[in-house]
Design a binder for these strands. Structure first.
Lengths: 223, 223
DNA sequence: CGTCTATCTTAGCGCTGTTCAAATAACAGA
DNA sequence: TCTGTTATTTGAACAGCGCTAAGATAGACG
């Protein structure tokens, strides 16, 4: 068997003492994890379109049918990829929030961090949004991460002076934040703006320039 | 031949007196047009993912290979679909611009019209953006329409009081407008916000509430 | 009328997502 | 340690996809 050669991984008994997290790694060790990692690798390398289930299986060194015992669908695998993405985004958010900046600036820098994330992981970012958009029946764990990032924006807004009592206003402001950042994230890749970026002296200046038109980014919160 | 039965269309000689626009309609009448229309129909009906070239050919009543004499690629057909979309959007913009509203409100209403378009034609809207995003080598006619819509936003901003001399500022404001509207367009489909929409008394109120956080939408232009 | 060219078809390649029965590896209990 | 059960993986197969190549056909043009 080719397989025993590939699997230079811990056996079940060995795994149990290191990390007994997931149900049970069998033949492969932890194929589910391996598949997600391979998928992320392929998506980031060649774009979401190039990520076929068969290619992922190939990358992981298993047969084309193997993934179907860990994901009912291709879309379920993509959900897992998106999940990974939301976790990375949340990490970027934490870093931005903890940076040494005044609360109002912190709001804007959160926006910049968001857009920067989208630019650093464009394909992953696209998968994240396609997953969120396509399904009314969004899987719980994706929704969870998405809401966690959403809440983080809201928290920064509050710390920047938003009134937590004005629930509706706060909600609208958070959405406006997110909309502007998401919109900007999808636009920055357009070559059209290269000249403008140069004129402003770099990409960050461009981002800040656009975001400063959004009230909450520009001057904290006052409705 | 099945074919002669399907073709109850003007022959070449008949066409020449009505509209001699495109190179030459041969066997089918004007297959190129028929394919684009079929494609738009399929996209709007079943989403962009369901639009296969073969399905389009089937819908138009021709063989799977026929489209390749009018489009070198599937992506080229999608470009044509996107083109159709940008034209529709531009039409919606004209209507919004000509409505009886004060210039500052006109800016916001342009945003609302944009988002409404995206909600009315969600699949078409997605095709439009996927086309714009995917290619650095965006086909000229798509880019053209895109820029026409972009310019329309800028014009409304000027008519609302923006300083045409401040080119950079105007550009940034236009982009901010577009970003917020595009971001909002992609978010409104999220079920998450249904409660909030209800609380605000409808979708339009929700849209205006979010857009009012963007400086240019809220109060015309002052930088 | 014959020739020519654009248009369309038929057939086929390799790829995809997905299903199914059969094989295999790990575990549980004797 | 052997046995049966179950989770995991494979191999083969299906329909559908984008796309190509070669041949048929219909209209345009001399």
């Amino acid at each position: 068997m080719i397989f025993t050669a590939i699997r230079s991984r811990p056996t079940l008994s060995e795994m149990k003492e290191s990390e007994a997290a997931d149900p049970r790694p069998y033949h492969h060790g932890d194929l589910r994890r391996a598949l997600v990692e391979a998928a992320v690798r392929l998506v980031e390398a060649d774009g979401p379109g190039a990520m076929s289930l068969r290619a992922v299986a190939r990358e992981a060194g298993v047969s084309p049918a193997a993934p179907y015992h860990h994901f009912k669908d291709k879309s379920e695998l993509l959900d897992a990829v998106a999940h990974e993405g939301w976790e990375k985004l949340d990490l970027a958010f934490q870093t931005a929030r903890d940076a040494q900046t005044s609360p109002p600036d912190r709001v804007r820098e959160l926006g910049v961090a968001y857009v920067r994330f989208a630019m650093t992981h464009p394909a992953l970012y696209r998968v994240m949004y396609d997953c969120s958009r396509d399904k009314a029946d969004m899987p719980a764990h994706v929704r969870e991460n998405e809401e966690s990032a959403y809440r983080r924006v809201k928290d920064v807004l509050i710390s920047a002076g938003a009134d937590p009592a004005d629930e509706v206003g706060l909600e609208l402001a958070t959405i406006a934040c997110w909309c502007a950042a998401h919109g900007l994230a999808e636009m920055t890749s357009f070559r059209q703006f290269d000249a403008l970026k140069a004129e402003l002296g770099g990409e960050d200046a461009f981002l800040r320039g656009v975001l400063s038109h959004v009230g909450v980014f520009a001057k904290g919160l006052q409705r």
